[in-house]
Lab assay of single mutants.
Amino acid sequence: MISLIAALAVDRVIGMENAMPWNLPADLAWFKRNTLNKPVIMGRHTWESIGRPLPGRKNIILSSQPGTDDRVTWVKSVDEAIAACGDVPEIMVIGGGRVYEQFLPKAQKLYLTHIDAEVEGDTHFPDYEPDDWESVFSEFHDADAQNSHSYCFEILERR
């Protein structure tokens, strides 16, 4: 099963200049909980913004210009990325925008964090048809001392 995991502000903004323009430790914990011990696929820009392999996960970098870091697996196509994951129950696609666009048609599940923030962004989550998805989990949280904005975790499964 292919799943996408993303944090989205208003207007589906997911990033600005290779960074997330908010401070939500709870979302980072949600991300870790849902990706640990699963292969993660990301684009080169996302890889560069993280700066290191995510521990406890097979890191697969999709790029037309593969790098030389041998701590991760470099691939040039969506099919190659899927094959590099091996026989696993769930593959997690973690961004960025172009990689989400490439995998959305193949995805069966979306793990979304909806952030109540209007922020400037240069990267967006692809538009998706809500009628194609069923919400199977939703959990709202107010902003607090650690988390700069209110947010809602949601899991959607393709109908």
Rank of each mutant, 00 (worst) to 15 (best):
P89V: 09
H149R: 06
S64V: 09
S64Y: 06
D79F: 05
N37I: 04
M92D: 01
D69P: 10
V88C: 07
S135F: 13
N37C: 03
P66A: 06
S63T: 12
N34R: 09
G86Y: 06
G86H: 09
A145S: 08
Y111N: 03
H141V: 09
S148G: 00
A83D: 05
H114S: 15
S49E: 03
G51W: 10
A6T: 15
V13P: 00
K106D: 06
G43L: 01
P25Q: 02
A107T: 13
K76E: 14
D116L: 15
C152H: 14
K106G: 11
S63E: 01
I14G: 00
N37V: 10
G56N: 04
S148Q: 00
A9Q: 02
I94S: 03
P130F: 12
Y111F: 12
A81H: 01
S77F: 15
T68N: 07
P39S: 08
H124I: 10
P39L: 11
W74D: 03
Q65K: 05
Y111H: 07
M92Y: 15
M42R: 00
L156N: 06
E157L: 05
Y151A: 13
N147K: 02
V93F: 03
R71P: 07
G67F: 05
L156M: 15
D79V: 05
R52W: 08
E134C: 08
F137N: 13
A117Q: 10
D127W: 12
V72W: 13
E154F: 14
S135K: 15
E90Q: 04
V99G: 13
E80V: 09
P130M: 13
L54G: 00
L8M: 05
P21V: 04
V93R: 01
V72R: 07
W30Q: 13
E129G: 13
Q65G: 03
I155V: 06
Q108K: 11
G43E: 02
D144G: 11
P55S: 08
N34K: 13
D127G: 13
M42E: 02
N23F: 03
K76L: 10
K76F: 12
R12F: 03
A143V: 07
L28M: 04
K76I: 13
V78E: 15
K76D: 11
I94G: 01
D127V: 13
S135I: 14
G15A: 00
N18F: 13
